[in-house]
Amino acid sequence: MEQNVVSGYKPVNNIDVYYEFYPNQASEQTIVLLHGFLSSTFTFRHMIPLLKKEFQVLSVDLPPFGKSAKCSRYKYSYQNIAQTVIKLTESFGLQKMILIGHSMGGQIVLNILHLKQEIAEKAILLCSSAYLKRSKMPLILSSYLPYFHRFVKYWFARTGVEKNLQASLYNHSIINEEMINGYLEPFLQDEIFVALTRMIRDREGDLPAKILKQIKTPCLLIWGDHDKSVPLKIGEKLSKDLTNSKLIVLEKTGHALPEERPIEVYHYIKGFLANNQTG
């Protein structure tokens, strides 16, 4: 790992959270990166080298993903994960934060803004999850069955990392061994499936429009026009409900923006942060 990164674990909110911190004394702003479902800080490996030149960067493995602990006592609700990120940033004493969330990470960003709007100057949502309901009751009840985590593992093995990547990307030619192995690695231990079973139970669903309309933080939404996971129409609806937001659509692009369009996304982020105008 590079010399100018501080990585490790912090015990916050009753769980050990893995982070990578890239200090930058020349920047007053800190970018906080939050990945999506079934992902990790690995998602941002192409964007971090670009961002850390201009900004201080904190990339977080959201529990239970990546290298963060998998704990059966932890509540894997969006609100609790958001609280965990807030407490982690407080432990670093961070000010003037810019929150960037991809997919489910975008929903965590919105939960953070709902809980503590003053925490961030601006937010960037990359194909953010939005308007998903809570899991249906039969699935929640099933999650209490002994060994239900084995069904979760079986489902994951059937869909497979490569298939998930193909569904997330418009350009399949960028899929390689490094990418497949990077996304597969956190799922080689059984603990993750026990935690995912708990998440089925705890996840309360995305924030409703009524709450989204109360968020006044300037938000930049960036979407792929070929996003199959969170279609563009979701981004269009979200941009209407977030009253201080702007939507940018990238052509011939799927869901995994940090993989497919890291340079373009970086330039849009830089432009958005340089512009003092809102909306």
Rank of each mutant, 00 (worst) to 15 (best):
A195Q: 06
R45P: 00
M97G: 00
Y266F: 15
S39G: 00
S173I: 12
S72V: 14
R150K: 15
L220T: 06
S27W: 02
N181V: 04
V57A: 02
G8S: 09
S173A: 15
F65K: 03
D227I: 03
G8K: 14
I234A: 09
K10R: 14
N4K: 14
N80E: 15
M199V: 05
M104V: 06
K237S: 14
E28G: 14
E251K: 15
S7M: 11
Y154S: 11
A157R: 07
Q95C: 10
L99Q: 01
Q107S: 15
D190M: 10
D241R: 05
L132Q: 13
L132M: 12
N275P: 00
T197V: 06
G106S: 09
I234L: 12
S68E: 02
K246G: 01
P11M: 15
R158I: 10
T89I: 08
V6S: 12
F187N: 02
T253Y: 07
I98Y: 01
F151Y: 13
L88I: 01
L132A: 11
V6F: 09
I48R: 05
P138W: 11
Q189F: 06
K67M: 09
G182L: 07
S142E: 08
N111S: 08
T89Y: 00
K87A: 11
S168K: 12
G105E: 04
F37C: 06
G235S: 09
A209F: 04
C127S: 15
R261G: 01
P11D: 15
S40R: 02
E54R: 11
H46E: 14
H267G: 00
L126C: 05
V60I: 10
G36I: 09
L232V: 15
P258S: 13
K240C: 12
Y76E: 08
A256L: 11
G93T: 13
L212F: 10
F42R: 07
G254E: 10
F55S: 02
E118N: 14
I180G: 01
L221H: 04
V5E: 09
Q29M: 10
G106L: 10
F92P: 00
G254I: 07
K53A: 11
V85K: 01
F151P: 00
S68M: 03
V17Y: 01
E251W: 03
S40W: 00
A130E: 00
R203D: 14
Q79M: 11
K70D: 04
L62N: 01
K213W: 11
L232I: 15
T84A: 07
G224A: 06
F148E: 03
S143R: 04
F187R: 05
I263E: 15
Y76Q: 09
F193A: 00
